[in-house]
Simulated assay, not measured.
Amino acid sequence: MSKWLLVNCLTFLLLFCLIFGVALGAELNFVTCGSVIKLLNIKHNVRLHSHDVRYGSGSGQQSVTGVSAAEDSNSYWSVRGTNDAFCYRGTSVKCGQTIRLTHVNTGRNLHSHYFASPLSSNQEVSAFGDEGEGDHLDEWTVQCGGSVWRREEAVRFLHKATEALLSVTGEQYGRPIHGQTEVHAMSSPSQHSLWKAMEGIFMKPSESPVGGRDYSHPHTEF
């Protein structure tokens, strides 16, 4: 399936759910593999966002920001496994599990490295890869308090390679992304690094994980 068709299929399904009040797995109280979700930073009330705008400094990769608008389609991320750990559709994401978050509209993965972020000079967070495939710097460990990532729970995302936490501290960009908030990574846990799953499509558990689809690699099934 082409990238263009994948994006349009996902957009259609999301619009269908919003118009007709349908939410796959709405009764679930945990986040599952294969789900397409928005993530809210609860300290700054902004959703994790990306778009086809590159940083003018640092890595020059696709920028990742925070936006206050709840309805922006560029804030959807797909929950996937890694190359080393399968993530079968509908299985709950466990606390301590390493995942990838793939930006739905551009097919690039949430990524970090030791470049300095543009505004705060913390660790840069970008979107990287092509068609959902990047490298080991796309891997994040879910930190939460119980056995699984619960939808109502504030969680943290620890970048596996650098041991820094996905964070927002409130710095805002000017043109061409005026008003959007810098997203970066920081070594110390704080209120700035707490995130909550919000709008999206939450996949129901499969009857048998053995027969489920592996979300280590990008797929779409309707």
Rank of each mutant, 00 (worst) to 15 (best):
T82P: 01
G90Q: 04
R156Q: 13
Y114I: 10
W149N: 07
E207A: 14
T162D: 07
E163W: 04
E207I: 05
G179P: 01
R156A: 15
R89Q: 04
S78E: 01
T98N: 08
L158D: 09
D135Q: 08
T82C: 08
C144N: 03
G145C: 12
D130G: 14
G211L: 03
S126L: 11
T141D: 00
L110M: 10
Q180V: 00
K160P: 00
H192A: 15
S112L: 06
T82Q: 09
G170M: 07
H159A: 13
D84T: 13
E124N: 08
T98K: 08
E171G: 14
Y88P: 10
F202T: 04
H184K: 09
S121R: 10
T169W: 10
A85V: 14
E139C: 14
V148S: 13
D130I: 13
K160F: 05
S92Q: 07
S92H: 01
S188P: 00
T181K: 05
E153G: 10
S73F: 11
M198W: 06
V168E: 02
V93G: 09
N122M: 15
S112T: 04
L101M: 11
W77Y: 05
A70E: 04
L119Q: 05
V142Q: 05
A197G: 04
E163G: 07
S78W: 01
S75M: 08
K204E: 10
K204M: 15
T141M: 08
C95D: 03
P176Y: 05
A164K: 04
S187G: 10
I201L: 14
E182P: 02
T169F: 13
V210A: 14
G211C: 06
E163S: 11
V79A: 07
G170I: 06
D72C: 15
S121C: 13
K196Y: 03
G129N: 06
L166Q: 02
G174A: 15
R100N: 05
V104Y: 02
A197T: 01
E133D: 08
Q97V: 11
T106Y: 06
H178L: 15
N105K: 08
S147R: 12
W140G: 12
S187M: 13
L110T: 08
V210R: 07
V104L: 12
F86T: 09
H136R: 13
W195A: 13
T162L: 15
T141E: 06
I201N: 03
Q180D: 02
N109A: 02
R156F: 12
K196D: 02
E139R: 15
P118G: 09
S117Q: 10
L110E: 03
D138N: 02
H113T: 14
A69G: 12
S121K: 09
A70W: 01
I201S: 13
T141R: 05
S117Y: 02
S147C: 10
G174Y: 07
A70L: 15
G81T: 02
T169Q: 09
I99M: 06
E152T: 08
G179F: 03
G200T: 07
H192E: 11
N122R: 14
H178M: 15
A85H: 02
E124C: 14
D130H: 12
S117C: 04
H184I: 11
M186P: 00
V183R: 08
S121H: 10
E139H: 09
S193M: 06
S190K: 12
H192C: 14
G90H: 05
G179I: 07
I99H: 03
E199V: 04
K196N: 01
E153K: 11
